[in-house]
């Protein structure tokens, strides 16, 4: 049976013509970006954006590694591990050039700290976060630009 793919949380990312993007927000007249787009109070960090009508915008889907680390022990709930026993995940903080902001994300399966260095070009990829009997719950992940990826669900790409 084919499982239904659904975002683990709605409204944070999308795929356009097969290209993954985070959904952010910006003020129409300024290059001030926010992610996630619609968390209460987030845009309020920018005094110049308070009260402004924010417009939804797809964030750059590539950037450079700002730093990276691992979650070597299973994070507590609400995180749901997709492997049993838990396998350490690698997490990257990636700087987006146009937006001048750094965004966190898991790296795709198989990427370890040894594969990364600060400044390396990365791209966004929609992958499986975890699954149950009927669903694959998806999330954004980072991978080195141009890298092939084995989906966390076990399908090649």
């Amino acid at each position: 049976m084919t499982k239904t793919r659904v975002p683990a949380v709605d409204g944070l990312f999308t795929e356009v013509d097969g290209v993954a993007h985070l959904i952010g927000a910006k003020t129409p007249d300024r290059d001030s970006y926010f992610f996630p787009a619609h968390l209460p109070g987030m845009a309020g960090g920018d005094p110049a954006a308070v009260g402004a009508e924010l417009e939804e915008v797809l964030l750059s889907n590539t950037g450079t590694v700002w730093s990276y680390t691992t979650s070597s022990y299973a994070p507590p709930p609400p995180f749901v591990a997709n492997t049993d026993p838990y396998e350490p995940i690698t997490i990257a903080a990636v700087k987006l050039e146009r937006e001048q902001m750094v965004v966190l994300g898991q790296c795709t399966q198989g990427i370890t700290p040894d594969d990364l260095e600060i400044g390396m070009e990365m791209e966004l990829y929609i992958d499986v976060l975890n699954e149950d009997d009927e669903h694959e719950y998806t999330v954004w992940k980072w991978r080195p630009r141009g890298a092939a990826t084995t989906d966390a669900a076990g399908e090649g790409n």
């Binding site: 683990a8 949380v9 700002w66 990276y68 691992t70 979650s71 609400p78 997490i91 966190l104 600060i118």
Partner: peptide, 23 residues
Amino acid sequence: TDWLRFKLVGATNPVYFGLNARR
């Protein structure tokens, strides 16, 4: 955002410390 970082990224507090140390 505190719920989202655990749910989607697995970003515990030590994850942020690790990012800082690597930097």
